[in-house]
Simulated scan of single mutants.
Amino acid sequence: MIKKHLVHLCLSAVCASALWGCGGSGDSPDDQSVTSPFNSFDSVSSVTLSADGPKAGLSAYDLIENVFAAGSIEAPDMYPTDHTEAVHIVKDSDNMVGPHFVFLAHKVLDFNKGVESDRQRNQIKTYDKSPTALKGYQGETMQFSWKFKISNELELSKKFSHFFQLKAKNFSQDNSKGFNADGTSTSDIYLIKADWSSITDEWLNITVQATFAEEGAFYMQISRMQDNAILVDINEPVMDMWRGVSSEDFVRPKWGIYRSLADGDSLRSEEEQVRFADFVVEKGTAAD
């Protein structure tokens, strides 16, 4: 499931069939009549994070922090009170995408940034210390693209399992803009639901385009690399994508594994692996 909060890519095993456009105006993958908004995006800056060979070059952590800034990794082994015995982001390579990053999760051993709680986290992010080109300020349009592969053996929490998020950084801590006019949370709106098996065991290309404004926009397309088949196509030309109250506030992306442990019986005890490659963050302009 992909839901609005700003936006979380929350993939849930409870979706037994594809329900395209549930809670939003996402198009069916068979409907190719709408011109893609991605084609009208004019990039003015671009930042890329890619892995090098698994046995050469810098460590995965050094590669990530060299681009996103020191402190951009929220892996369990980065916190002295967490699972420090294992490196949680490593490098690998295959014949489809070449060098890439592998994010690891351990049901029993991993905590949430050093705190044992009802959830666990292994994520990378851009944040206030990251370069300006990696943060979305009010009125800006950005594209985020990456490659993604996940095994069908990975067990998902029935509460939440997040692999990508757009998160609002509000320095005033005013969360009033996180609610609809009737008082319900904006997180109650699901943009699309899809069959879990349609995206597993395949390398995927994912592109997100967002305009960060009160009347902003959000577009997302997920396609299978092997045959370019479009599996998810979300088109939201008018959508509240801003919670800021000052010029310092911004929206930032996060990637990795962030999942609930509240229903731990639904999760496997084996190590889980999620693969990412070729993160690209761009700022630019889009046609009205």
Score class of each variant (00 low, 15 high):
residue 1 M to K: 10
residue 4 K to D: 09
residue 6 L to G: 07
residue 6 L to I: 15
residue 12 S to T: 07
residue 14 V to K: 14
residue 15 C to Y: 13
residue 18 A to Q: 14
residue 24 G to N: 03
residue 27 D to N: 04
residue 29 P to C: 05
residue 31 D to H: 03
residue 32 Q to L: 15
residue 35 T to L: 11
residue 36 S to V: 05
residue 38 F to Y: 08
residue 40 S to L: 03
residue 42 D to T: 15
residue 45 S to C: 05
residue 57 G to H: 09
residue 60 A to V: 09
residue 60 A to L: 10
residue 63 L to M: 14
residue 66 N to P: 01
residue 66 N to I: 04
residue 68 F to E: 01
residue 70 A to H: 10
residue 79 Y to D: 01
residue 85 E to H: 10
residue 89 I to K: 08
residue 89 I to V: 14
residue 90 V to A: 05
residue 95 N to R: 14
residue 100 H to C: 03
residue 100 H to V: 02
residue 103 F to S: 04
residue 106 H to D: 08
residue 108 V to N: 04
residue 109 L to A: 15
residue 110 D to P: 00
residue 113 K to L: 06
residue 114 G to C: 04
residue 116 E to I: 02
residue 116 E to G: 08
residue 119 R to A: 07
residue 119 R to S: 09
residue 120 Q to F: 00
residue 127 Y to A: 12
residue 129 K to E: 07
residue 131 P to H: 09
residue 134 L to I: 12
residue 143 Q to F: 05
residue 147 K to G: 09
residue 151 S to C: 05
residue 154 L to W: 08
residue 154 L to A: 13
residue 156 L to W: 01
residue 159 K to G: 06
residue 161 S to Q: 06
residue 162 H to Y: 14
residue 163 F to G: 03
residue 164 F to P: 04
residue 165 Q to G: 01
residue 168 A to D: 12
residue 170 N to S: 06
residue 178 G to A: 05
residue 178 G to Q: 01
residue 179 F to P: 02
residue 179 F to V: 07
residue 185 S to G: 13
residue 185 S to M: 07
residue 186 T to Q: 14
residue 186 T to Y: 09
residue 187 S to T: 11
residue 189 I to F: 03
residue 191 L to Y: 07
residue 197 S to D: 15
residue 206 I to H: 00
residue 210 A to Y: 00
residue 213 A to D: 13
residue 218 F to Q: 00
residue 219 Y to G: 04
residue 223 S to L: 00
residue 227 D to A: 10
residue 230 I to H: 04
residue 241 M to N: 04
residue 243 R to A: 03
residue 243 R to I: 01
residue 247 S to K: 11
residue 248 E to A: 13
residue 249 D to W: 13
residue 250 F to S: 07
residue 252 R to E: 03
residue 255 W to V: 01
residue 257 I to G: 00
residue 257 I to W: 04
residue 260 S to E: 07
residue 261 L to K: 14
residue 263 D to M: 04
residue 263 D to P: 01
residue 264 G to L: 00
residue 265 D to S: 15
residue 268 R to Y: 06
residue 269 S to K: 11
residue 271 E to G: 00
residue 273 Q to P: 03
residue 275 R to S: 14
residue 278 D to N: 15
residue 279 F to R: 10
residue 280 V to D: 02
residue 282 E to S: 12
residue 282 E to C: 06
